[in-house]
Design a protein around this nucleic acid. Structure first.
Lengths: 346, 346
DNA sequence: TGCTGGCACTCTCTTGTTTAGAGTGCTAAC
DNA sequence: GTTAGCACTCTAAACAAGAGAGTGCCAGCA
């Protein structure tokens, strides 16, 4: 058994070179090819010895006897963690990013779509952006419109100019006038505050028996919170899925189907992305690391993005394990920062 | 050259039988297999003669010398138009449909999604439903909220309880009070009428120099119309795309990619579906008939659906040319009617 | 005239075999 | 510790052969 001490500088350089070559041309890399590396004046035989060690350590693996070696998940992991030389963004790409995201115009929804499209267009893989999910969203404006029976259409505008609407069911019948009054009250008294604080506030007022507060107000806030709670916030914008169909490692139809099914179920993907909400900076899942079968042959490069220093969402790129990490990582990083900036300025 | 007179009852029955067999097991059908048909007491040799005629007429086609025959697009077309024996819906399916669609609860958006999901779940192909697009939509409620500079958030509730919102840019700055006033005026005076009629009305009032009408009102309606005009109505709900990955005739990765790209572009698909808006009843595109390369190996079974006798949208099923038309056609038909009914009752 | 049995033919698909090429592991020598 | 050499293994491509399916056509029969 080879110990970690065998991981001297030379073996690491060899691993790095191997991973880079494999990422570049997708073929298993043999000792002969590596021996051509000008920085590495070694014969194929020596390289074979080193590769045997790397294989013992589970960093590379041979598809069959007479093929070269291919990085394993651990190999990629080591590569990404310590060997990678990150390529800074090309200025052309940076320009494209900035001009696309920072033009003040459309609503938040459009900005997210643009970001996702950028991620997929530039990397030629799939781009994903989760909808921003703020802990405390303040009320900007609320409206209750009666529908048939006990159904009420609640329109809820948050202070980030996002419009939510939801049909809710109430226990009793409310008259249009009642609804109007409740909305007016909430709009005039509590705009700018978060829902939970509004609720607290009203309860307090009620205790103190203020005249203008009544059960209706409570109901109204409950409705509003309902609207918000049920809002399908577990959602994301995914673009460029079709790019993934070009990769040979995903050309297996059964695998591809599972992957696309995961995309439309959304649950699993969201759950995976949520794990990146906590983490600072760029987070990477390689192959089976994600824990989701559908992503076994994919890697996920993600970064959280923030509005006003509050982490609200995650964006990233989904592609085959064999991807150009050195370009994707900085790109995801910058995009996340720019998206945050774009949403800040709203 | 064989003339149409050769299309006697026997040849037609043979074609029908051939198409049915091919649809059922996906293999080219040979003369020997067809000779086993109990209603058709003919030797393989005779059947071969008839099949040769059918091939001359371009109704069937042989992939290679020693394979059986496969229907061409014309063959499918003749089959669908005149030979098909439609299978009525199974009561289980009808129950499922009714209970899913006719439960009064959620907004129109959810109903459309449910319809689409039903289409894909039952047929195990892809289901599509275009968003309803009414010629004249009446105003239920409107709200203008100021954002930064000359940007205004318009919230527009139509009488079918659908909420639209859009950020528009105006020429000059409007004060919150102005916006409030405009919205109040529109809501109180014109709720229930269509936008174009509101506009006419206001212009008329202005000519007659009524006191309460001013340029602001005109601007308000213009804004409202803008909101509505720019609304991306060229949209649909598509579900079960992944089902399509199971079909061998779509297993070519390049084709599949084109198909999925068409799905996400949306333009072409919408254009195709629009052609069904005019038509009464179920409309079918078989293979290349659609005119879109991406759909060359697909068939599309569609039907328009109506709200209050006004045709507003199209729904349908997308699958391989080799699909069970006799089941899909009645299913699409019924679903369209039920969806109309479900939306009517709102 | 229309149907049928027979037969030669064609094409695909599968299987087995061979060969070239690539890459390895091991060993002995430097 | 490094290297050259060599036997070995495995894949991929090319080729051959045979089985199977289905056809077209022809001659004979009702």
């Amino acid at each position: 058994m080879a110990s970690n001490q065998d991981l001297n500088e030379r073996s690491l350089y060899l691993l790095k070179s191997l991973v880079e070559r494999y990422i570049h041309d997708g073929q298993p890399v043999g000792s002969r090819a590596l021996s051509k590396d000008p920085n590495l004046k070694l014969s194929p035989a020596t390289i074979r010895n080193v590769m045997a060690d790397l294989e013992d350590m589970g960093l590379i693996h041979s598809p069959h006897t007479s093929a070269g070696r291919v990085p394993t998940v651990s190999g990629y992991r080591l590569f990404v963690n310590s060997l990678l030389t990150v390529k800074p963004l090309e200025s052309r790409e940076l320009d494209q990013l900035q001009s696309s995201l920072l033009t003040e115009s459309d609503g938040p929804g459009e900005v997210l779509s643009k970001a996702s499209r950028l991620l997929s267009d530039v990397t030629q893989m799939a781009g994903v952006v989760t909808l921003p999910r703020r802990e405390t969203i303040a009320l900007r404006h609320i409206e209750f419109l009666p529908m048939s029976n006990t159904r009420i259409l609640v329109i809820f505008v948050t202070d980030d100019q996002d419009v939510h609407n939801k049909i809710i069911h109430t226990d009793r019948l409310y008259s249009p006038a009642e609804l109007q009054q409740a909305a007016n009250y909430l709009n005039s008294m509590y705009a700018g505050r978060s829902l939970s604080r509004i609720r607290e506030s009203i309860l307090l007022d009620m205790e103190q028996n203020r005249a203008q507060v009544n059960q209706g107000m409570i109901d109204a806030v409950t409705m509003a919170q309902q609207t918000f709670a049920q809002q399908p916030k577990d959602d994301y914008v995914l673009t460029g899925e079709t790019n993934l169909m070009g990769f040979s490692e995903l050309s297996d139809m059964e695998r591809l189907k599972q992957l696309f099914e995961a995309f439309s179920q959304k649950r699993g993907v969201i759950h995976l992305l949520d794990q990146c909400l906590q983490a600072e900076g760029v987070q990477i899942f390689i192959g089976e690391e994600s824990g989701y079968r559908a992503f076994d042959h994919c890697s996920l490069v993600t970064s959280s993005y923030s509005i006003n220093d509050e982490v609200v969402g995650v964006l990233g790129v989904i592609g085959p394990t064999r991807m150009a990490y050195e370009k994707v990582i900085p790109f995801v990083d910058v995009t996340a920062k720019l998206l945050g900036a774009a949403l800040n300025s709203k």
